[in-house]
Design a binder for these strands. Structure first.
Lengths: 199, 199
DNA sequence: AAATATATTTGACACGGTGTCAAGAATTTG
DNA sequence: CAAATTCTTGACACCGTGTCAAATATATTT
């Protein structure tokens, strides 16, 4: 068998970077091939389709992201944990180098707009999975906080509420790109869930 | 001058319907032309581009939607108003006939995923505008409620929170398509903003 | 009423993107 | 060294957006 002339993971990293910065729709396999110094056909041979390539890149991203969130949610008081969680989320929206103007182009990555990005069922699923896992993480954190008396309420409902706000922030970021505003909303959400700062 | 062989508004309605059901990306001008019994080139002549056609369709939608929201926000107790507001929002996510499976395909319309939909700055702006105007509507409602003693807190912050949840719900709808869950989250949000049901 | 001006329609075309395929090239294995 | 296998390469088909010139239909002017 003939050996591959490129590194599978390198391509995945290069592709992810472009998807992240320019959106899935805005990135062609020709772009990725050029950047990776690979023939377009070779990518089709190795990955099958643009969507398959995207899914692999996305899974890697999702894994890394979950680890980072877990870390953010694992230190200090419940309020500190949630603050770190929102901080990381918002920072994540704006990481990478935005190609044009203020609002960055994150395509499906933060919005799960699979169809809009020309992707299909599987991509939607992948996003839904990530959201579910993040929700579970937040819920565990709230439950632990409740055990320590830092929170009393329905952990499941509160986690769902928080994740919803998170997704809403992603939309607002795209529409307005106003980071300070996003942090205010996040702080307000924490206050609502945990009770005003005093409590 | 030669008169047009089609009705401008008819085309707008047909186009909007397709954009709504299949997403902007998933709808080609050939589709619209076929449905409208018009030549594709005539659409380009009349509207300039797919994006321009979309923008006109979107403006019309935004106007109608705002009127409906205003109506929903204008009757009964503050809690009732907010409930009606969320109800309309969620119903709106799921109106139209979904083409495949459970999650409907609303593209930019509810998410503002302009780039993902192959659209540009202007579409993002149009969406941002709609969100701003809805936020203003909610804020006014909250302020009025505060004047009647039905709410005490920062109306601006609360409105921003509510709109964020709303946008988050749109994302969740696409990812999971689980309507009952969405209504629970909405109810929970109202409780958080207004205080538990008793209050 | 005929000629002209003007706007719309129509079909051909260019371009770029995804995806397929057969033929060529490079290794590993027999 | 030959065979089998996998990767690479370039050509091709297909679809979508957008452009353009030529043809067409109406309003206006004379």
């Amino acid at each position: 068998m003939r050996p591959r002339e490129f590194d599978h993971d390198d391509v995945l990293r290069i592709a992810f970077d472009q998807f992240w910065r320019k959106g899935v729709r805005g990135t062609s396999l020709s772009d990725i091939a050029r950047d990776a110094g690979v023939q377009r056909g070779s990518l089709y041979n190795a990955f099958g389709s643009k969507e398959a390539l995207f899914l692999q890149a996305y899974e890697r991203y999702a894994g890394d992201y979950l680890v980072a969130l877990q870390k953010a949610l694992g230190a200090g008081s419940l309020r500190k944990r949630l603050t770190a969680f929102f901080d990381l989320t918002i920072t994540n929206f704006r990481s990478g180098s935005p190609p044009r103007g203020c609002p960055t182009t994150r395509g499906l990555m933060e919005l799960g707009a699979a169809e809009g990005e020309g992707l299909d069922e599987e991509a939607r699923q992948a996003f839904a999975n990530l959201v579910s896992r993040i929700t579970a993480l937040v819920q565990e954190t709230l439950a632990a906080g409740a055990a320590r008396g830092e929170f009393n309420g329905n952990a499941a409902a509160a986690a769902l509420h928080i994740i919803t706000v998170t997704r809403g922030l992603a939309v607002l970021e795209r529409a307005f790109g106003d980071e300070p505003q996003l942090r205010k909303i996040a702080a307000h959400t924490i206050d609502l869930v945990l009770g005003k700062k005093g409590g």
